[in-house]
């Protein structure tokens, strides 16, 4: 079998800070970029730490051999990774997991992102261009990221903040409901906090629209061998059991997930 997952030390060709504790890296890793798909993730080593940190892929540039990741500092490990300067090297393993299932670009899609769940939606929305709408939610204006990138992707962008300091005041689920009242897309994709995903999945069910969600869990190997990143799901036979975010996910069909 030809290798389809790679690990190595790759150069950071661009780094910017895009909000408080959120960093935007472009990494030159042609082998990873070549096979990466929207919604997949990479597993990044933090110097001095045992476990790699899973970070979703935001954008894939196969021609240049680059991937873009937008990550949030959550603890000591991610803080260590975030210190890597432009021109420095990152130890990256990937691409990993199952990404979003993309329909024909002529179909219509709504992507819903919440907080640090916004970045993985960018590659997805780019596939649909003007046939997509993005509903992006943040705590407040200071935490808002990637708005321009989504606009450049050609989609309609609805921005929501919890405190109303930018865009609509309120949760993305409210904006999604308003949108679904007007027009039904072929598919909904979502990534963000668990309550948000649960709300999006419920709306998709109510309106009878196909929905895929990207899940998160503390991870070990990242490749399906260690079984730590358990996520409760429904099997085809109706029984529930633990699937694994790194192998079966991170993207699941919403109706499979037991929230």
């Amino acid at each position: 079998m030809e290798p389809s997952v790679f690990q190595g030390s790759y150069p950071v060709v661009r780094k910017t800070a895009c909000a408080k504790q959120i960093y935007d890296f472009t990494v030159h890793c042609p082998d990873i970029a070549q096979t990466a798909q929207a919604g997949q993730f990479v597993h990044i080593k933090a110097a001095g730490f045992t476990l790699r940190r899973p970070i979703s892929i935001c954008r894939i540039d196969r021609e240049k051999g680059n991937i873009r990741i937008v990550m949030e500092v959550r603890g000591d490990g991610t803080a260590q990774i975030a210190q890597t300067p432009e021109g420095g090297m990152l130890d990256v393993m990937g691409p990993l997991g199952h990404g979003f299932q993309l329909l024909e670009p002529t179909e219509t899609a709504i992507v819903v992102g919440g907080g640090i769940g916004v970045p993985p939606m960018l590659e997805t929305v780019s596939h649909y261009g003007k046939n997509a709408a993005a509903i992006l939610g943040f705590r407040s204006a200071s935490a808002a990221i990637l708005e321009e990138d989504f606009q450049k992707a050609g989609c309609q962008v609805v921005l929501c903040t919890d405190d109303g300091t930018k865009g609509k005041k309120g949760f993305v689920t409210q904006a999604l409901k308003e949108s679904l009242e007007q027009t039904k897309p072929s598919i909904i994709y979502a990534c963000g906090p668990l309550p948000m995903l649960k709300g999006v999945a419920a709306l998709a069910k109510e309106y009878g629209i196909r929905c895929q969600v990207s899940m998160e869990e503390r991870m070990g190997c990242g490749i399906g061998a260690c079984l730590v990143c358990a996520c409760k799901t429904k099997r085809p036979d109706g029984e529930t059991g633990y699937s694994h975010v790194c192998k079966n996910g991170p993207v699941f069909n919403a109706e499979e997930v037991v929230f």
Partner: peptide, 23 residues
């Protein structure tokens, strides 16, 4: 066996803890 509920893993100094529970 279904194994234990998540989280099943934690970082430790120079190591890790796991509680997969023989899934």
């Amino acid at each position: 066996r279904q194994g234990n509920p998540p989280p099943r893993i934690a970082e430790t100094p120079s190591g890790m803890l796991n509680s997969v529970g023989l899934q």
